[in-house]
Design a protein around this nucleic acid. Structure first.
Lengths: 343, 343
DNA sequence: CGGTAAATCCAAAGCGCTTTGGGGATTGTG
DNA sequence: CACAATCCCCAAAGCGCTTTGGATTTACCG
């Protein structure tokens, strides 16, 4: 069923039917009702393609998901983020289109989306320090919002980010207050902006309390369970091992716990662990009492909010760039406790 | 840059340029080269929307991801699956469009995609027993392939599935051979086809060895870490606790391990664990030696393969339905060992 | 050299929608 | 009752592409 057929069935012109369906005022209320009823009855929905062609808009938003070629890793927060954003798109009549891009071919992917006029805007995932995509997108004139920030980026942009620096500073303070001075950091890759900021917060807290940094206690890589395990195992084997660990993700924290227990130690007594928690649907940090003490911020909520920002920016391009900084919640769980006394 | 502008720049008609770019024979080879060079130079890419309108195809594939309203859970395998499929689409000039659908509104979403003519076909995720979507899609005439199978479905369909029954039967046999007779099953929700089949395999193996089923040892829910933990804790508290566990996912296996260790037991000695492993990029089952003994099957590879099946079916609708059954690999890790002697 | 076939290219229609620029019918006003 | 202002509705153009049905040129042959 297309517009023409529907209008013939109703004995109206395509113009009138189109207007009725799109809420224009120059159509009789009775007629509109009649049209809407018929549209529902025949399950008529305007073709997105045709509508897009006619209006000059794509009625679609692009998400380009980066895949590191090294580990072929897909960011595990992706599903939940999409779930949040998707709802917003659907409610506003937008489609969500996904492209995957291995390292290095991201520019091509964005240019392709623009040239094919496939999307009205994109969400930039996983921003790095001084991320070149920001300049690129500004150059080619494709509206975008960034999930996170990019320290050092020269051109302006809209973003939504968790206050990673503050979260990790606070988490570190929390451990220091418990008496810990040997605190390890199991971070994400530090060319990623969020990881960089987290390290900043960690560093700042330590230095503020006169605790020297120890390179042996700072590791960074992709946030897998195995990486959390290996890092922890290695650190625990040091002459002067850490009594507390800061993890960048629940997944690496699980690995850390494995190493702690394998070493015959007890989490929360011998080794305290704090992790960041993206509140993923399939990986909840315990039920009522959190397993891990954690800095929590819902990635799904971020997705929904960011989608709204992007749609608003597309609807009115004159709007100034929005900046949203979310504070992570510090949830105290059972993985932290006072530093063990030295004997 | 659009076709018209490009053709004017070249002093050719739109027809000729279009044909040159699409590889039709009625254009001089020299002209084609000239056109292609110009297209590259000006970064011309045909508008997907316009092309779709003209050809009557959407040039897009839909993925509808189900979200259980109960736990708002997004399937964690989703990211990796998409990564596999996305590559295939990109290579063939298709866009991938995503819709999310809460329980119960899935039919609306599929009908919407069809009515808007937004996609040429869809991938059905997470099929349930006698899944109504299969009939629906056959009815409305939207090409599709299923990731998994649907026992009891009346209409025919194309699918790609892991041999879940055989995998779990083999895993159970493996445990029985090690001397275990009290074997727990921590399954996914059993209205999901894969979970149903896994239970089947488990049951069949036990009965074949004359081991009676014990409802206390069979649990099923969404495969979270917390569920794995609670199930294991509860089972270990039984008068006659299990000495081995079968988990439906690596994530619930992590929870199971937590409960085992919390009970002061050692995995692989006191309690053996076998899990299914989807080989997710962010949740590898250890490095060289697997942490868990596992039945492994890459979900990413499944995504790539399934995408190819769908594109083939769309290109030639007369093709018979393809059925692909993948065998999971049994990887022996450190989580299994002989059943402890009774004292 | 006339005629035919093959090789190249083009003008225009059409995909399904929105939107511009009217135009007839109805209503209100003096 | 005449006229203007509203209300409703419509025909047709246009979005960027593909494709049909020629038209023109070139090549070849007897």
């Amino acid at each position: 069923m297309n517009l023409k057929q529907l209008s013939q069935k109703l004995g109206l012109s395509q113009t009138t039917v189109s207007r009725a369906l799109n809420g224009y005022p120059e159509v009789n209320e009775a007629t509109r009702l009649r049209v809407e009823r018929a549209a529902a009855q025949y399950q008529y929905r305007p073709s997105t393609r045709a509508k897009g062609l006619a209006t000059g808009k794509a009625l679609a938003i692009g998400h380009v998901i980066p895949i590191s070629t090294k580990h072929e890793m897909v960011n595990p927060i992706f599903g939940d983020f999409i779930a949040g954003a998707g709802e917003t798109y659907a409610r506003n009549g937008y489609e969500m289109i996904l492209s995957i891009a291995a390292d290095g071919q991201e520019e091509q992917v964005y240019r392709g989306l623009k040239a094919r006029r496939a999307v009205d805007g994109v969400v930039v995932h996983g921003p790095r320090l001084d991320d070149s995509r920001i300049t690129l997108l500004n150059d080619i004139g494709l509206p975008f919002v960034v999930h996170g920030r990019s320290s050092g980026a020269s051109s302006p942009y809209a973003w939504l980010d968790v206050n990673n620096r503050h979260a990790f500073q606070r988490a570190t303070d929390f451990l220091i207050d418990l008496g810990h001075t040997r605190i390890g950091l199991i971070n994400g890759m530090e060319f990623m902006d969020f990881a960089h900021r987290r390290r900043d917060g960690y560093t700042k807290a330590l230095l503020a309390h006169g605790i020297p940094l120890d390179p042996d206690l700072m590791r960074s890589s992709e946030m897998t369970e195995v990486f959390g395990y290996q890092s922890t195992r290695d650190m625990l084997a040091l002459d002067n091992p850490p009594t507390a660990l800061l993890c960048a993700s629940l997944i690496s924290a699980l690995g850390a716990r494995r190493a702690v227990e394998e070493a015959g130690l007890v989490m929360g007594r011998d080794v305290s662990i704090i992790t960041h928690d993206d509140d993923l649907s399939y990986l909840k940090n315990g039920d009522d009492i959190p397993i891990f003490t954690a800095t929590r911020s819902s990635v799904r909520a971020a997705g929904a909010r960011l989608a709204e920002m992007l749609l608003a920016a597309i609807a009115d391009p004159t709007l100034p760039h929005q900046h949203v900084l979310l504070e992570a919640e510090l949830m105290v769980g059972r993985s932290t406790g006072p530093a063990p006394r030295k004997e």
